[in-house]
Design a protein around this nucleic acid. Sequence first.
DNA 1: GACAAAACGGAATGACATTCCGTATAAACG
DNA 2: CGTTTATACGGAATGTCATTCCGTTTTGTC
Lengths: 202, 202
Amino acid sequence: MPAKKPSQNQHDQDTEHRFLRSDARRNLDSLLNAAMAVFETSGVDAPMKEIAGKAGVGVATVYRHFPQRSDLIVAVLAQQIDACADAAKVFAADYAPNEALSRWMQRYIDLVAKKRGFAGALHSGDPAYAGLAPYFFKRMEPALAGLLADASSAKVIRAGVTAGDLLTAVVRLCHGPQGEEPAYARSMTRLLLEGMACGTKE
Amino acid sequence: MPAKKPSQNQHDQDTEHRFLRSDARRNLDSLLNAAMAVFETSGVDAPMKEIAGKAGVGVATVYRHFPQRSDLIVAVLAQQIDACADAAKVFAADYAPNEALSRWMQRYIDLVAKKRGFAGALHSGDPAYAGLAPYFFKRMEPALAGLLADASSAKVIRAGVTAGDLLTAVVRLCHGPQGEEPAYARSMTRLLLEGMACGTKE
DNA sequence: GACAAAACGGAATGACATTCCGTATAAACG
DNA sequence: CGTTTATACGGAATGTCATTCCGTTTTGTC
């Protein structure tokens, strides 16, 4: 028998490590990186061949890991969601509460505003993407809630603003016409945050 | 010489009559109807062949009238925008100001909420759809402005709400998750309108 | 009725997504 | 180290469209 017994798989997203041969793991990582890069430059409708090429694998390899095109898109998105949510812990550890909050919001805006076609996929009604919005909130809400709690107990922001409300508001603010600069979202969000401040401005 | 001289073309959208042979005109109408029906049932990604088939023409005929797939989508959308905008005059003539306003808003919501993939196309960033949003406003804004003015001078709504604001607000309200029932948008919009009323409720 | 411009329909063409299949390779075993 | 075999691989089919081409059919004029 070639392989020992599988242990377990951890949670829910496709980026997870079930039990992969070492080369398969390497290709999977390469694939996710390539896909992220290509989606950013050519949009989510880029040909599979381009992604496979950039990852240095054949197309069949892409399909073995991601049976449908949408699975790859979901995986990339989930990875970015995870990265953004996880950044909250880092900022919280490295900066004062208000600074941490502010920096994380930048990060969040960059993710939400840089929607090269992702938004279209999300709102397309395709059931393949149905789980993403819930996942988005499941990850983001606790991340922001922690930062808000810190800022709130440090008395730099007023209480009473929920994480969910803020997340949603920013998403909507970023939902303007396609080519819109993230600068708009940033400035609108700055207003939001200043509005939440405790009047301790300069 | 086969045809007499062209007269002129009227305005901007593709649904316009430049100078067409009778059969071409017939096919164009048939095509627009077929496309509207197919888009509604199968979504905007339906194969051209399906549309051409339902219209009883060959695919080449579709492409002669609409060089790109997006041109057909734009034409159908423009037609629906026109129909909705034009309905304002009819309602204004047939009903009391508040009733006319209310009925037109229903019509408008039905158009905006019934976004079988159209929203995705609009927000896709594809330059082919760049002109649609401006066109949408150019047609809708005057239509609603007239109704609002009537209702305002009849003292059934308070002044100070602009047509543009209202149009945008409703679009945003309808912008929820894909499968969302129009009932949600309707009830939210009812709230908006009641909020605008002059306190003359029962 | 004859003619030429305008339209037509269906058969190419070309780009993809997705699937198939013979080959190569990592891991367990001797 | 060699053998073995399940896994994984890559590139060549296959199938589905959008879009284009071209020989044939209409339409409007004379």
